[in-house]
């Protein structure tokens, strides 16, 4: 899968003058490298002030990196920001739109800033013949319906709730059918139904339209449900990078397996002797840490003469991984 975003050795240093020629340096982002592939949703998490937003601002060209390279669909942001931005849609920090315009007017204005060829679907040749105005109007309607704001399109943005602004922000980001979608806290201000709606929308965009999506959020449950991969950043450095479906596995590929079994003590001795792994007993549960899959383990235990009532890989919550990695809980 080709990468839509490649970030290499990104560094951002803020120099502040303290008078009398003395300066102090603050390294906000320190050697961050990662990439996002087509159709992949990457969660970007970290404590407050870890460098998430600074990284995102550098990716979108709002801030200039001190060192490092960023390329979006092969176009360098430093050398050709305008071209690179053709492939990007996003909301940074807060979904701010022009408050004195209606939702529709906001999008109608912003859509004019995209060149015509971003509106054209390569599969549909008839679109190329249509005037840009027509394509724009159609696209605005499409994205408003996509985020569920079509009914409220004629209200002023200043009267929108935070959730509606969030949806409008996402709609705005989708106008140009971007290859890379960057969303900062997209679930902020949304009600549970809204959160699910946006999650499904993003999964659909990644799945059907092959968008690469970067989501930064503090809502770790949401990230766990939505993303394919997660990146944990702290003090400007990436400290952990994991696939969500492998969260429970450690570096050796081992994970905790919980087994409900009739004779836990004997079973513990059995697995110790057979596979040389230590097992813990809690009531009728047996907990072992191994890289073996549950199917093989069940078969072995049944062959050993035990009754297995249940077996499952212990679920690991992203929250625990996050707190573990950042040391925030200590």
């Amino acid at each position: 899968m080709p990468a839509v975003l490649e970030v290499k050795h990104l560094k951002k240093t803020y120099v502040s003058r303290k008078g009398a020629g003395r300066t102090s340096e603050l390294v906000a982002v320190d050697g961050v490298s990662f990439e996002i592939n087509e159709g992949e949703i990457l969660g970007f998490i970290g404590p407050n002030g870890a460098g998430k937003t600074t990284t995102i601002k550098m990716i979108t060209g709002l801030a200039k990196p001190t060192e490092g390279e960023i390329s979006i669909c092969g176009h360098s942001v430093a050398k050709d920001r305008v071209r690179a931005m053709r492939y990007v849609g996003g909301v940074i920090e807060t979904p701010d739109m022009y408050p004195d315009m209606t939702g529709l007017a906001n999008l109608k204005y912003l859509v004019t800033l995209h060149p015509k060829d971003t509106m054209i679907d390569p599969q549909d040749a008839t679109l190329a013949a249509k005037p840009k105005k027509e394509l724009d109007a159609q696209r605005v309607e499409d994205v408003l319906r996509m985020v569920g704001l079509w009914e409220r399109r004629n209200d002023l943005v200043r009267k929108y709730s935070l959730g509606m602004k969030q949806r409008l922000g996402i709609a705005q980001a989708l106008l140009s059918k971007p290859k890379l979608l960057i969303l900062d806290e997209p679930a902020n201000g949304l009600d549970p139904a809204g959160i699910k709606y946006i999650r499904d929308l993003l999964r659909n965009l990644a799945g059907v339209y092959k968008m690469g999506i970067l989501v930064s959020s503090h809502q770790l449950n949401e990230i766990q449900l939505m993303c394919d991969r997660v990146l944990i950043i702290n003090n400007g450095k990436i400290i952990s990078q994991k696939r969500i479906d492998e969260l429970s596995k450690d570096e050796t590929g081992a994970s905790n397996i919980v087994i409900k079994i009739d004779k836990p003590a004997e079973a513990a001795a059995y697995v110790k002797q057979k596979f040389n792994v230590n097992a813990q007993i809690s009531g009728s549960d047996l907990r072992i840490r191994t890289a073996m899959d549950t199917g093989t383990l069940t078969k072995e235990l049944v062959l050993g003469g035990f009754n297995v009532y249940g077996i499952a890989t212990e679920e690991v919550r992203l929250e625990d991984v996050f707190i573990d990695a950042t040391g925030e809980g200590k």
């Binding site: 931005m85 807060t94 701010d96 739109m97 912003l110 800033l113 995209h114 922000g169 980001a173």
Partner: peptide
Amino acid sequence: RNGTLKILLLHPIS
């Protein structure tokens, strides 16, 4: 102040 500049600069304009 409104933050709309961030949205604007995410568009392909110099």
